[in-house]
């Protein structure tokens, strides 16, 4: 059944709008968390305590690859939303699964980057700069991981419950979350990686 053909009681429709707005407020609150982590990073970016700097540690290629998979995952999630509106369950499942794969790629790349740095002796305990870097980028990574778990739960719900109105409403909020994380990532590569390698 397509979204348009779905019968939703006015009360439920109101509830979904309330939830979307509430979730939007949560995202704004989360945006402030990231904003303050960015401010902290900028305050500490010069505090390398004699340790390695961004120029020595960051890899432009890896950052570009991370950006690419994350942007693609946002698009594939969008395709899932379109399939949802059309009421095509198997396509929703397919696009969600692809999104999970891309997101997992991102996490894999990021974990690789973190492990590499820690092995070089450039872990968060090395300097204030690295503490701020790991916290900022790690917080984003944590959000992506939670997002991945959430997508997996939603795949389960779509599979077992079908495209019901509550499931559709949850998928829409999940979409907000997923696209929001992309915006944070845009700021991360513009504030951390690109100026870092200069």
């Amino acid at each position: 059944m397509t979204l348009e053909a779905m019968t939703v009681s006015p009360r439920d429709a109101e509830k979904y709008e309330e939830k979307e707005f509430g979730f939007w407020l949560y995202l704004m609150s989360d945006a402030v968390i990231f904003a303050l982590l960015f401010a902290t990073y900028l305050v500490m970016v010069g505090n390398t305590a004699g340790g390695p700097t961004g120029k020595e540690l960051f890899s432009l290629e890896r950052a570009a690859a991370e950006t690419l998979v994350l942007l693609l995952s946002s698009t594939t999630f969008g395709f899932a939303a379109v399939a949802l509106s059309a009421g095509d369950r198997s396509k929703v499942l397919m696009w969600l699964a692809i999104t999970v794969l891309l997101g997992a790629c991102f996490i894999f790349l990021e974990i690789g980057e973190f492990c590499g740095m820690i092995q070089e002796g450039a872990g968060p305990e090395r300097s204030g700069f690295l503490s701020a870097f790991f916290t900022l980028v790690g917080t984003h990574g944590l959000h992506v991981s939670v997002g991945l778990l959430w997508i997996c739960v939603m795949i389960g719900q779509v599979f077992f419950k079908g495209l019901t109105a509550p499931v559709a409403s949850r998928l829409m909020r999940l979409g907000l979350f997923w696209h929001f994380l992309d915006i944070i990532w845009v700021v991360i590569f513009s504030v951390v990686y690109l100026p870092g390698v200069l």
Binding site: N47, G51, P124, E125, S131, T135
Partner: peptide
């Protein structure tokens, strides 16, 4: 949340957000 989380990291996981040495502020 950010202030608490960073101080937790400092205290428990040897980060250097607010320490005297190692580039804390």
């Amino acid at each position: 949340t950010v202030a608490c989380a960073t101080l937790i990291l400092d205290r428990n996981f040897d980060f250097h957000f607010f320490t005297n040495a190692m580039g804390g502020n």
